[in-house]
Design a protein around this nucleic acid. Structure first.
Lengths: 145, 145
DNA sequence: GTGTTTGCAAACCCTTTGCAGCGTG
DNA sequence: CACGCTGCAAAGGGTTTGCAAACAC
């Protein structure tokens, strides 16, 4: 992973994310989306606040939570429930994936999950259910060898 | 398992769970384990408190949390992180399983997960990790058909 | 006895909300 | 200009902890 232009994000048109969610474009919200778009990691609300403040030092924690909540409702971001830790957030991924938490560092790593998804669908079908959403979290420790 | 009534049936030797965890045997703890052993559902700390109080009305919420925490550390129970809801607890299952949450009823249903486990292990190995724990939660809706 | 465990209430942490002013559309 | 959005501070909900008394062993 090198780079900036990961998928295709030409010119940081974060305002369009907000318009898509029927939200007014404010500097605070742009800063928050900017943070989520900048790195593919999975920051907590608190981490988002401190990064966003480097872009716009008027951002408050309340606005972070309110913005995250609106963006989630609009399907623009995803909220991850991590065991024994506060919620983490990521832009809704184009490619589905699950997460592996490194128990030693707390780092959240993405897992490509095509196989997992298929299996889940099959299992749900066997049980007479249609999947609404699904999420796998692995907690692991880096292998030494 | 040998014994009476439903399925499995600890003849109330809950004390051994406590000794196994190096914990003193107290009526409050017995009540709490009794609750977890009685039903195969997945109660919250609050639900555990009110059920435990029917057995021993001196149990407090603090003791519920302290006991759950000790039992979890000893591997005797498992704590489930459910999205946007408080933690749920279950006796560590002999047979591994994951969970499906019925989005309409809130019911938590167990999923036999042999295939899922295998897949997780393989995926973790590919990523250079050893799995410490893993959990899948499916959220679904009963199929009409 | 002695070190654990308990209930109570206060403390904690993360998250949400009421309010009065500010800024977007 | 109206109304949505903001920061602040206070409130919330689940979980944890300090303390002195009660208890298991």
């Amino acid at each position: 992973m090198t780079n900036v232009t990961d998928g295709d994000q030409p010119s940081t048109d974060y305002a369009s994310f907000l318009r898509a969610a029927d939200l007014r474009v404010t500097p605070q919200r742009l800063a928050i989306i900017g943070v989520l778009a900048a790195e593919a990691d999975h920051p907590s609300a608190d981490e988002i606040l401190s990064r966003a403040r480097r872009i716009d030092d008027t951002v408050s924690l309340a606005t972070v939570y309110r913005t995250l909540s609106s963006l989630e409702a609009a399907g623009i971001i995803r909220k991850l429930a991590i065991e024994d830790a506060s919620a983490r957030f990521e832009l809704t991924p184009r490619r589905e994936h699950d997460h592996l938490v490194d128990v030693d560092t707390g780092e959240v790593i993405e897992i490509p999950n095509d196989e997992i998804v298929q299996l889940h669908q099959e299992i749900a079908r066997r049980m007479g259910y249609d999947i609404v959403s699904h999420h796998t979290i692995l907690r692991g420790r880096r292998r030494q060898d």
